[in-house]
Design a binder for these strands. Structure first.
Lengths: 216, 216
DNA sequence: CAACTCGGCAAACAGTTGTTTACTGAATGA
DNA sequence: TCATTCAGTAAACAACTGTTTGCCGAGTTG
């Protein structure tokens, strides 16, 4: 599984070969069948492995309570940390969520659905949700989960392994400011901080909408 | 390109073989090189083809103006229509957005960035954005684009070719009588109407937050 | 008419792929 | 102690892969 995950950082699951995996793992090709029948089976195993840690982190974040602003900060930081510390897992999930292997796709979708239910439960228990219909709470939860996924994907794209800035970049109109290109390694968190800031503001905006939802 | 797009409905671009493509197209393997050097080159060509129609539709939707509620309806309907009428293109984009082929990924990301800029421009021109900083308008636009992408992906997953409803389905809690609202549109599927309803409510919630943003 | 490009063909090339079969040593357990 | 399971190996198999080379007819242009 580690060999497969390592190879999947640059490839796609459907393009992965089992010979490739066994070679990376230092095994004989036939040895693969001792553990998995398919490559898809390896895929769903990786899905479970990938979502275990994320699930734990999210659950902990949902449990804690406090000021809305502090919760937003914690949430965004948890997402950033997951992507930073489990980059391979996160990329695998983002890549195969809509990938070509049906069982893997469905495994990820099912887990995300469970996430949404959990978030909906936590939201429903909050006092801000008084007077909300369960369907609306559920939709709010889905919005939060979708936003979490988008944010995680943005963190991934801004990661250190993607230097691909092509020349035709349309860098914001007249936004010449930030590009202090001097340090190549020191400013590794610059793009990530920008994404985190954006995510926080977006979450804050959703929260504002949530508080003013009943009077519209 | 048509042959490739057709094959990509069930595979992933990085797992696609050029022999496969030429076979599907009824050509000789060598004939491929008359049009593309790589499979990645085919990929970016497909990206441009896929985003052409979507871009036109979105631009038209951004241009028209009216009541907020009506605009939300139009927007969601445009997304649904794009996915319905250009299913192969939409799936290709969703699948390769985080896929294993770098040039394709970057082409999609660049186009989505351009989308966000366009949306930001349209938002900034609206009276509701008075007093907003350009950065906040930009973040709002990114939130809208992300939501558009998530909604399109949800429409895809609920499409007719994905029967994969496993037994453990957790249907909405107590949402017994779903569908009998008078559908003005044609024969959309039940799941699609559910997704459209969710998307509309989520957009409405973001709109509420937007209107109450300055007093927080 | 002549030159030339364009789209396409068949054949060949060396590698790589997934899968099966029979075999091997090391744990494991009664 | 002996049988059994577990994890892994080597070899073989046919099928498929990307790429190159040389060739060809149909248009197009001068």
């Amino acid at each position: 599984m580690d060999a497969g995950l390592h190879l999947l950082e640059h490839q796609n699951l459907s393009s992965l070969g089992m010979r490739e995996v066994t070679r990376e793992a230092g095994m004989s090709p036939a040895g693969f069948y001792r553990h998995f029948r398919d490559l898809a089976e390896l895929g769903v195993a990786l899905v479970e492995e990938s979502l275990a840690s994320l699930h734990a982190m999210i659950r902990a974040t949902l449990a804690e309570q406090g000021e809305a602003e502090a919760r937003i900060d914690r949430t965004v930081e948890v997402i950033a940390r997951y992507v930073r510390e489990h980059r391979a897992h996160a990329r695998f999930l983002a890549r195969e969520r809509h990938g070509g292997v049906r069982p893997v796709r469905e495994a990820i979708a099912a887990e995300l659905r469970r996430f949404a239910e959990e978030v909906a439960g936590a939201l429903g228990a909050q006092p801000e949700s008084a007077g909300w219909s369960p369907e609306d709470v559920r939709m709010l939860a889905e919005l939060y989960v979708d936003h979490m996924v988008s944010t995680a994907a943005a963190f991934l794209d801004a990661g250190p392994d993607g230097p691909g800035m092509d020349g035709s970049g349309s860098e914001g109109p007249g936004a010449g400011g930030p590009g202090s290109d001097g340090s190549r390694e020191g400013c590794e968190g610059e793009a990530e901080r920008r994404i985190a800031r954006t995510a926080r503001i977006q979450l804050r905006l959703i929260g504002v909408g949530r508080r003013h939802w009943l009077d519209s």
